[in-house]
């Protein structure tokens, strides 16, 4: 037993970003999207990122996914560079736009990941700490997402929310070790959103997936997360990290409790500070107090 306990100092069991800097453009119109960002996300954690529009949330997500090269600093996913994690299909991405293939129906779209990079499973087994799982039944996942009736529909025949759910199922389907979700529920109504949140939590709990979740909704962040990272713009950086110590499972009733509101208020305060530093990108500052 003692032999299998994890080494405490290694980064092999976390997503770790060290001193990440990302700069877009050059000299005259330089934009610092990320300035010296450090992030540590342990395996199995649910972490949300919240912050004003344009503060670099998507950029940070792309960095973890290996879609963006940092200008300085390092990114590692469970001890390997993001590119290797991708090669092993350890990362599931739900981008800000649903990004479905318009010529494939819903089932075709969610089955697509299985058709590319078939060597991934072999690579995966070699990466430390990876949990092997049986391939999921796509129809079952689709029905859990409420898409049973849409299985054979084309993306153009779906509502925006259905497209988002399809993109989520597509990401779940690869059984990733890390799920990167960029405002995945933005096009859903409140009740659909809550039901999908519950399903996400179920899947997260079942599979011990690590989730990095970008959102603009404070209550969504509190309900879902172990930790909420608050970001601020110009330059993009993490200004606060709030641990949500509410017990799980978090029921519908908990949303109305004082503890829940307490966490919401803490995050809202952090957000407001972040916002007041940069009221609107480029415009004149608004006097303190006017922004409440």
């Amino acid at each position: 037993m003692t032999l299998t306990s994890p080494a405490p100092t290694s980064t092999a069991d976390s997503i770790s970003i060290r001193g990440a800097v990302k700069i877009y453009g050059s000299a005259p119109s330089r934009h610092v999207a990320l300035a010296n960002v450090d992030v540590d996300i342990k395996r199995g954690q649910f972490v949300s990122i919240i912050g004003p529009s344009g503060c670099g949330k998507s950029t940070l997500l792309r960095l973890i996914a290996g879609l963006e090269e940092a200008d300085a600093g390092t990114a590692e996913v469970f001890g390997v560079p993001p590119e290797r994690a991708c090669a092993a299909k350890m990362i599931g991405l739900v981008p800000q736009a649903p990004a479905l293939l318009p010529w494939k129906d819903v089932l075709g779209n969610v089955s697509m990941p299985a058709k590319v990079n078939r060597r991934a499973d072999k690579l995966r087994r070699r990466i430390h700490g990876h949990l092997e799982r049986p391939a999921p039944d796509m129809l079952d996942l689709l029905s859990k997402a409420g898409l049973t009736d849409a299985v054979h529909k084309l993306p153009a025949q779906l509502s925006g929310g259905m497209q988002q759910r399809t993109a989520i199922v597509r990401a779940f389907g690869v059984q990733p070790d890390v799920l990167l979700m960029d405002e995945p529920f933005s096009a859903l109504d409140e009740f659909t959103r809550e039901s999908i949140q519950e399903q996400l939590l179920d899947i997260w709990d079942e599979n011990k997936t690590t989730v990095v979740f970008v959102t603009h909704s404070v209550s969504e962040a509190v309900r879902l997360s172990d930790t909420v990272l608050v970001m601020s713009a110009r330059p993009g950086r993490i200004t606060a990290s709030v641990d949500i110590t509410l017990p799980r499972p978090r029921s519908q009733a908990m949303l109305k409790t004082a503890e829940f509101h307490h966490f919401e208020d803490v995050i809202r305060d952090h957000l407001q500070t972040a916002w007041q530093e940069n009221p609107m990108t480029g415009s004149t500052p608004i006097p303190a107090g006017a922004a409440s």
């Binding site: 792309r62 996914a65 290996g66 879609l67 590119e83 991708c86 090669a87 092993a88 299909k89 990362i91 599931g92 991405l93 981008p95 800000q96 736009a97 649903p98 990004a99 479905l100 293939l101 697509m112 990941p113 058709k115 590319v116 990079n117 991934a120 597509r170 690869v174 990167l180």
Partner: peptide, 23 residues
């Protein structure tokens, strides 16, 4: 192809040939 679609298939590490054929 939209950048978001490319991003999804890049994180799946689809080969250039797979990208060409499927996307």
């Amino acid at each position: 192809v939209s950048p978001a679609v490319l991003q999804v298939f890049t994180t799946l590490h689809a080969s250039r040939l797979e990208m060409l054929w499927h996307v």
